[in-house]
Design a protein around this nucleic acid. Structure first.
Lengths: 192, 192
DNA sequence: ATTTCGATGAACGGAGACGTTCACTGGAAT
DNA sequence: ATTCCAGTGAACGTCTCCGTTCATCGAAAT
């Protein structure tokens, strides 16, 4: 019964990966069950058998993708005391991650309105967390704090990396420096 | 025969504006002829009568929208000698324009792949022009010039304004200052 | 050898969008 | 009064996707 289960699991994986590929290329919104089945080399029916509804499929695909593209570890950022140095580390790691995550992330962001709500919720929760960690130590209150968080969120966006490094042709470290400059410009009366 | 032509032109306008509204709200890709007809208070058939193919409709809608949302005048930018001052002016005007243009522009950018090619060509031509005008006078050559043009293009994007001023809650002038700082950081050995 | 069950192939009805045809109406233009 | 024609209403066939049913195949498990 092991060979049996194994083969079933293999089929499930092929479907999951096919879905992932399509989400990365045409985007979740334009991904049809028929296309998934064809890409996976199975029948539409088989897809329905493994994933009764769209959400189950999306969840499986999402989990698998996240396993392949782990986000930079926030705890490592927390461990850096100097906020400027911490920011550079965070941006460097985030942009490295973006380079591999961009195809999926841009499609996800583009199709967000038509996606199950937990996706957007997860993303925004994660953004808040990262921004909060990076904002610490700059000594910003009130308006300055709003400004700082806003520019931090912007610097961390995959679209920002794509705009600078793909469309603009910048190297990673150049993008890190420029966005660091923007963030520091949001901090009033910085001693250096 | 005047009343006749006038009424026809009015119908045509109603269709054009209905299309514009839908493009602004749900985006061009999700805009169906049936929805346009309903929004305009006419029949599908009438839409087809006025605009035989999708491109004709899009062109009319696009022209009308551009009339309502004129882009900042590049020549005014050209007239400013100091590159830093010119940049601030350009960003201020561009962000003001973005505030009214964002609903349409973000949908257009999102649906670009499924749109007639002349749209993307126009946008990229326009971007090149504006970046070129703004890059003048910073004395950047080679790698620095690439970097400068990259950040300039990024700073000018509607998505950048939206990320900073809508998602981030920044005021226009704050966004201008931060992006100016990023651009200046791309210029090596600036005297001040 | 027989049972089990994941996967197949064929087909169904429904929804929504497409583009097109035809007969018809009603108000300007003549 | 009659002609003209933009717009109507209803219907047509086509396409793609959806989700579901049924009988059947074939390889692993017994």
């Amino acid at each position: 019964m092991q060979a049996r289960l194994e083969s079933v699991e293999q089929t499930r994986r092929r479907i999951t990966e096919a879905t992932m590929n399509l989400h990365e290329t045409v985007g979740p919104a334009a991904t049809t069950v028929a296309a998934i089945a064809e890409e996976a080399g199975v029948t539409r029916l088989t897809v329905y058998r493994h994933f009764p509804d769209e959400d189950a499929l999306f969840a499986a695909c999402s989990a698998h993708w996240r396993e392949l593209h782990p986000r930079p570890d926030v705890d490592e950022w927390r461990a850096v005391a100097d906020p400027g140095q911490r920011l550079r580390l965070a941006l460097s790691e985030t942009y490295d991650w973006s380079a591999s995550a961009a195809p999926m992330m841009t499609k996800i962001n583009r199709d967000l309105p038509s996606l199950p709500p937990f996706v957007g919720e997860f993303l925004s929760r994660d953004e808040v967390l990262r921004v909060s960690v990076l904002a610490r130590g700059f000594g910003c209150r009130g308006r300055a704090a709003v400004r700082l968080r806003g520019v931090l969120a912007h610097a961390l966006r995959v679209e920002t990396w794509e705009s600078l490094c793909i469309a603009g042709g910048l190297h990673r470290d150049e993008a890190v420096e420029l966005m660091t400059a923007a963030v520091l410009a949001a901090v009033p009366a910085r001693t250096a």
